[in-house]
């Protein structure tokens, strides 16, 4: 298991969110989630400009084993997607917290990030899941 970077926030459904200097929020799935899914073979990305949020799945990651919806940790508008995943979905397996990012959201309200799990709380969550 790779280290969980300290600047991330997490959803219980294993998405991570990183608030960047320009006020945008980058989103991906955790290393734990990619490990559970196994080899990823296909990523369905959201449309740029679409409205996303924690209540509706906006992307899909498919592994050999299963398909899983991805939610945006915060409400907002998609401003960028990781097109490189079209050709190399395995980036998520290799570097879930870096190269394997999925999309970027312009948040309606940055304060929504405060409601997410911090790295310690998320580490506890996946530890409990494993037992």
């Amino acid at each position: 298991m790779s280290e969980i970077p300290g600047d991330l926030k997490f959803m219980k459904s294993h998405e991570w969110a990183r608030l960047e200097d320009d006020g945008l929020v980058r989103v991906g799935i955790s290393d734990h989630a990619q490990n559970q899914l196994g080899d990823l073979v296909y990523v369905e990305l959201p449309d740029i400009g679409s409205r996303v949020g924690p209540d509706n799945g906006c992307a899909v990651v498919e592994s050999v084993k299963a398909a899983s919806d991805v939610y945006s940790p915060v409400n907002g508008e998609v401003v960028a997607v990781n097109d490189a995943l079209d050709d190399s979905p395995e980036s998520i397996n290799e570097d879930a917290f870096g190269e394997g990012w999925i999309f970027v959201v312009r948040p309606d309200d940055k304060a929504e990030l405060d409601e997410l799990l911090d790295p310690e709380a998320y580490a506890q969550l996946i530890e409990d899941e494993d037992h």
Binding site: G38, D39, V41, V64, K65, N93
Partner: peptide, 8 residues
């Protein structure tokens, strides 16, 4: 065992 790392 379902895999030992990468099933592919």
């Amino acid at each position: 065992p379902i895999n030992y790392g990468s099933q592919i």
